[in-house]
Amino acid sequence: MIRVLIADDHPVVRQGLRTFLDLQDDLEVVGEAADGTEALALTESLSPDVLLLDLKMPVLDGLGTLERLAERGPSPRVLVLTSVSDRGDVAPAMRAGAAGFLYKDVEPMALVRAIRAVHEGQVLLAAEAAEAVLAAPVPGPAAAGPASAGAAEPVAPLTDREREVLTLIASGRSNREIARDLAVAEKTVKTHVSNVLMKLGVQDRTQAALYAVRHGLA
């Protein structure tokens, strides 16, 4: 079972999501939060696998919630589900640790598939959200220093093997799956992943995957 926590300030939205998600054999809604502060408390007490997170909430908004979760260390996979159409919100949310970004007009079964996908380690974006990410400045070394207008962002100096690992990370592969695909030890993959994150100047696999997409490496 995939344990899901819903964070949204509208009771009708929460109830509708709970009613639909609980119909799925592999999903269980373990709690509901009306704001970011409540979401953080329930995340700690309920240990959900996936957090469905709205961006616009009182007390503590979605972005603030993501940042607090990142400070705590290991946390649930976060799938942003919002009605906000401001493309400027997408990249900050993904950089703060979101594993996916969808809008509330998503088809119900597409939402179910998205929850399953992010739980499995994939990065999933609505089409408009993906366009916003592609247009956003790249974090880390690739964005360092002034760039001339219209100049292409340089790609971090990765070895051929590290590029292979980055491509597989972007496709949602786990370390074990990458080890199997490359016919190497899982410990070796962990070393490669650490080197990739360090060279890209990013904090986690989600940000590395976004980097790969923006640079045409995945």
Rank of each mutant, 00 (worst) to 15 (best):
V59I: 14
A98P: 02
R77K: 15
A93I: 08
D105H: 12
D89L: 04
F101G: 01
P74M: 01
P48T: 02
E71C: 00
P92A: 03
V84Y: 08
A91E: 11
D54A: 09
V80K: 11
S85K: 12
A91Y: 10
D54S: 03
R87G: 08
R95A: 13
R95Q: 14
V106L: 06
V50Q: 05
G97H: 12
D49R: 06
S83D: 12
P58S: 12
G62E: 02
V90Q: 01
L52Y: 14
A98N: 05
A99P: 01
R95C: 02
D86W: 06
A93G: 04
L52N: 14
L102N: 11
L53N: 12
L52T: 10
G73N: 05
A99E: 06
S75T: 04
T82S: 14
T65R: 03
F101A: 01
D89C: 01
R72F: 06
E71K: 15
E67H: 13
V59E: 15
E71F: 07
R87Q: 10
A98R: 00
M57I: 06
P76T: 07
V50E: 09
L60M: 15
P74C: 11
D105G: 15
T65C: 08
S85R: 15
M94H: 02
L63D: 03
R95D: 14
Y103C: 13
R77D: 10
A91R: 06
M94Y: 06
P74W: 07
P58F: 14
G62F: 05
E107D: 15
R87K: 08
V80Y: 08
R72G: 15
G88C: 01
P58L: 09
